[in-house]
Simulated scan of single mutants.
Amino acid sequence: MSCDRTVALGAYLLGSLDPAERSSFERHVRGCTTCRREMVRLAPLPGLLGQVQLSDLELPFDDPAPDPDLRPLPPEPGPEFGFDPAQALPPPRRRRWPVLVGAAALVVLVALGVLLVPRLTGGDGPDTVTWHASDATSGVVASANLIGKSWGTELWMNMENAPKGVRCKLIVHDRAGRTEIGGWWGTDHAPGERIPGSTSFPVDQIERLDVVVDMQVLVSVRP
């Protein structure tokens, strides 16, 4: 069984859908077993892409050394043949962005093909915990279910009293001081909705989870 809306899962997990599209997709997922299964399978995507650095996409742009076996081209025809070299088009400039985009796509494919697919065949790890927290200033109440996996940690969030019409970002902090983006979601969802996320950090290395809106921490969830 397949669903033609699974193609939107990547954009949903990366927070690229606008609020109306996101709300529509979340309503669809509640009743679609195929999309829910694919959402769990692709849950590590935001954490993996969060580790890609701009330096990973840089490629050398020097011209290759000339091949000594190649013969030089004959001289271009001069004005006596009705051709004016001054009017010839300049050589095309080497474009950097298409190569960077191609490199970025390659890095993403490697991350998905090498890291995601093989490791998803592993079962749950021994660590499965649930954390609860509330924030007296924002009034937000949240709980997080952390499930240990061979590739990191699967996250499921529940939130109450969040402001409507905003986008939340989940920041995962580990005990070594590193951070990853664990997911994005809109707050226009049904009460009690379970929100998926992921991180490459193992459960026992996670120090806290911050739910952030516009650089403001709504709530921090800790052990």
Results as ranks from 00 to 15, higher is better:
V52P: 04
F25P: 02
D174H: 12
V203P: 01
G183F: 05
V219K: 03
R194I: 01
A142K: 03
A104Q: 10
A88M: 13
V101S: 09
V110Y: 15
T187D: 03
W185R: 04
R95D: 12
G10W: 12
A86E: 15
T187A: 09
P77C: 07
T33N: 03
V203D: 01
F201K: 09
A11P: 00
R37N: 10
A43N: 07
V219Q: 04
R71A: 13
D84V: 08
D18I: 13
D174K: 11
V40L: 09
D210Y: 02
L109P: 01
W97G: 01
L209D: 00
P85G: 15
D67N: 14
A43D: 09
E58K: 11
W185G: 02
A8F: 14
E58M: 10
I147A: 06
P85H: 07
E180N: 10
A162K: 00
L170Y: 06
W131V: 03
S143R: 12
P196G: 00
R93D: 06
P64L: 13
E58I: 14
L100K: 04
G47T: 02
R30C: 06
I206T: 00
Y12C: 05
N161P: 00
T187N: 05
P191A: 10
V212Y: 08
Y12H: 15
V107G: 01
P60M: 02
L116A: 10
L14S: 06
T187L: 10
V29L: 12
V52R: 10
